[in-house]
Simulated scan of single mutants.
Amino acid sequence: HQLFSPGSAVVSRLCHAGCLTCSALNGCLSCKPRLFFHLEHDGMWERGTCLLSCPRGHYGTRSPHVNTCTKCREDCVSCFNRNFCTHCHQGHYLYRGRCEDSCPEGLTPNAALRECNDCPVGCEVCVTRNTCTRCRAGLYLLHGQCHHTCPGGFEPDGQLMECISQVHCKVGEWGDWDLCFRRGRTRGYRKFEEVRRREVLRHPTLYGDPCPKVKEWRKCVIKRRPSPGRSDGKGIRPTEH
C-alpha cells in the first residue's frame, strides 16, 4: 500500500471510492469521470467527496475538466440551477422558479406543497388547479369545487361549510293496534281509544323530507253487557267492537 503525508496529493487505493486524487487532510481532490466534486463541512475543515449526484440543496454543473456541486440560494431547499428553485423552505412559496413570501394576486399559497397554485374560482386553499380543499367565506365545498348554493340532492352544512348529501326520513310499517282503553263515559257505553305505532328507520338531515307521524289513534267502543250468572243486569262486562 502507498502511504502519504497529510498534505500530499496521491493516486492511491487508500482514497475513498470515486476519488481520482486525494489527501489525508482534505479528502478527495479530484474525481473520476462523470462524478461530481462536492465539499463537505467537517467542523472547521472542508473535505472533498465524489458523488453520482449532488446532495439536496445543491445543483450540479458539468464542464470538460471538472463536475462540481454548487449550493442553492438560501431561500431554496432544492434547485435546478442558481436562478431556478424547485422547492422552498417553510413559509415561502414557489412561483416561476423563485421562492416568494406571498403569492401574486389571483394565485393561492399551498402550504403543503409550498407553491403558488392557480386555484378554482372561490377557492382559498387548493392542492391542484382543479381541486379545492377550503373555500372562501360564504361558499360551500363539494367535490373539490366551491358553490354559492348546493346543487340538487345536497344541502349546506354551516359548520363544515360543505355540501353534504341530503337524507330524507324513512319509516317502517305500522304495528298492530293496541288494546282499547277508556277515554270517557256515555250512557250505556264507554268511549275508548286504541293506538298503533311505527319506527323511524332513518332520520332526515336538516333540509331533508321530515318524518310523517309515527303514532296513530282511533276510537273504539266497548258495549256494556250483563256478566254470566247475573239476571238483574247489575253484573256487566265490556265487549269490544
Score class of each variant (00 low, 15 high):
4 F>N: 01
9 A>W: 08
9 A>F: 11
14 L>W: 04
14 L>S: 14
15 C>R: 02
15 C>P: 01
18 G>Q: 03
22 C>L: 04
23 S>R: 03
25 L>F: 13
29 L>F: 07
30 S>V: 02
30 S>E: 06
32 K>H: 13
36 F>W: 04
40 E>C: 00
47 R>M: 12
48 G>M: 08
49 T>D: 02
49 T>Q: 06
51 L>E: 13
52 L>I: 13
53 S>Y: 05
55 P>T: 07
58 H>T: 08
59 Y>I: 06
60 G>H: 05
61 T>S: 11
63 S>T: 15
64 P>E: 02
65 H>S: 14
71 K>F: 00
74 E>P: 00
84 F>R: 10
84 F>P: 01
90 Q>N: 12
92 H>E: 11
92 H>T: 07
93 Y>G: 04
93 Y>F: 15
101 D>A: 11
106 G>W: 08
107 L>S: 11
108 T>F: 00
116 C>F: 08
122 G>V: 01
131 T>A: 10
132 C>L: 02
132 C>H: 01
133 T>S: 11
140 Y>D: 04
144 G>C: 13
148 H>E: 14
149 T>M: 10
150 C>L: 12
151 P>C: 09
151 P>E: 06
152 G>W: 01
155 E>D: 07
156 P>S: 02
156 P>W: 04
159 Q>K: 07
163 C>P: 02
164 I>H: 02
168 H>Y: 03
169 C>S: 06
169 C>P: 08
174 W>E: 09
175 G>Y: 08
177 W>E: 08
178 D>T: 15
179 L>M: 09
180 C>V: 05
180 C>M: 06
180 C>Q: 04
186 T>C: 03
192 F>A: 14
194 E>Q: 15
196 R>L: 12
197 R>Y: 14
198 R>G: 05
202 R>K: 11
202 R>V: 01
206 L>D: 06
206 L>R: 14
206 L>H: 04
216 E>W: 08
216 E>R: 14
221 V>N: 09
227 S>F: 02
233 G>I: 01
235 G>I: 05
240 E>F: 00
241 H>A: 01
